[in-house]
Design a protein around this nucleic acid. Structure first.
Lengths: 108, 108
DNA sequence: ATAATTTATCGTAATATTGCGATATAGTTA
DNA sequence: TAACTATATCGCAATATTACGATAAATTAT
């Protein structure tokens, strides 16, 4: 069905999944990598860097923004996008929680 | 098109994106959370815990396994699934790399 | 005001994902 | 061997995602 039973998961689970989902596309990873290594962050430069159309880049930026992974600041006709670190602790905590050594004896 | 231009991204970018993609569904997050808090890890218990059919759970387990996030060990007729921490450093490194404070002056 | 520039949105087409019932497969037990 | 149990796979239908060209919207420059 392509539909997800969102009612039956905890808010925490849904939030974590939605953040990872936004990170689950190479174009969006490439955008974040680009933003991290650049001193500027104008939308047009991302379009020039990635192998996608301006429309497609814009859609990916919307998704990253909706997930809270970037924030955009209008500056004249262009928009400056930057990484939003807000959810990073959530990601780190989730990964750490998976590392509890309860099951070490199980699949050895 | 729903198709991704995989040729034009680096292997590193594609790998990171595929790991996050596997994490980008609440059922798979719930499976990992379950595996982390249980002392046992039998497939059937996951089916009993989550609001999905056995077939759907199995598909999600295949995806998690393909992404290298779990490993399965056959034990009789049942299968014991455990978290595979192999890729966790990659995730942590990626998140850390996004935290370089180059753009701090940009979107304030 | 008009033109130019930059980004966002719309419409459409193609592919991917998700879910389930049904069935197949593999191992266990009687 | 035959029945049983547990998991995987198939086939299908519905929804989601992705990409692009075209166009709209917003700001700046002439």
């Amino acid at each position: 069905m392509g539909v997800t039973k969102t009612d039956t998961y905890t808010d925490q689970t849904l939030t974590v999944a939605s953040i990872f989902k936004a990170l689950g596309h190479p174009a969006r990873i490439a955008i974040l990598e680009f933003l991290a290594k650049q001193t500027t962050c104008i939308c047009g430069e991302i379009v020039a860097e990635l192998p996608l159309s301006q429309a497609s880049i814009s859609r990916h930026l919307v998704e990253l923004k909706a997930a809270g992974l970037i924030k955009g600041t209008i500056s004249g006709t262009s928009v400056c996008y930057c990484i939003n670190e807000t959810h990073f602790p959530l990601i780190n905590t989730f990964i750490q929680q998976l590392q509890t050594p309860i099951n070490t004896s199980c699949c050895s």
